[in-house]
């Protein structure tokens, strides 16, 4: 196991952590709006670490480039999807959960 491999494995730890946290948040957060946060933030970061880990294992620059591209696209997509869902929810008059509401 080379140093890079080790580093790559090391990076997978935070990746996994953020994925798990994101999933837990998705389950525990009280309403749709809050869950959007879970999806857009924790998972993106998790993916970022994972991509980074894979980049370290990549055989050539081409793969690094592809991974970066994928990450960028996912980021953009998740931001957009988050907006679309949120917008639809607002339009349908979904009230956000607040402390006061049961």
């Amino acid at each position: 196991m080379s140093f890079l491999d080790f580093l790559s494995a090391l990076l997978l730890v935070p990746a996994l952590f953020f994925f798990v946290a994101g999933t837990v948040a998705l389950l525990r957060f009280p309403d749709l709006y809050s869950r959007l946060h879970a999806l857009t933030k924790a998972d993106n970061v998790g993916l970022g670490f994972a991509v980074l880990a894979l980049m370290l294992r990549a055989e050539n620059g081409v793969e690094v480039f592809k991974l970066a591209l994928i990450w960028g696209l996912v980021l953009a997509a998740s931001s957009t999807v988050c907006f679309l869902i949120g917008q639809e929810a607002v339009r349908r008059g979904l009230k956000p959960w607040t402390r006061q509401s049961p």
Binding site: A21, A25, F29, Y33, S34, K41, V45, P96, T98, R99
Partner: peptide, 24 residues
């Protein structure tokens, strides 16, 4: 900021009582 955002969600999610006061 992304990392902070991720951490923020993780913290709130994993805390015993979700520490939220959401709003628009």
């Amino acid at each position: 900021e992304s990392c902070l955002g991720g951490w923020d969600v993780a913290r709130r999610a994993l805390s015993p009582r979700p520490d939220l006061s959401p709003g628009l």
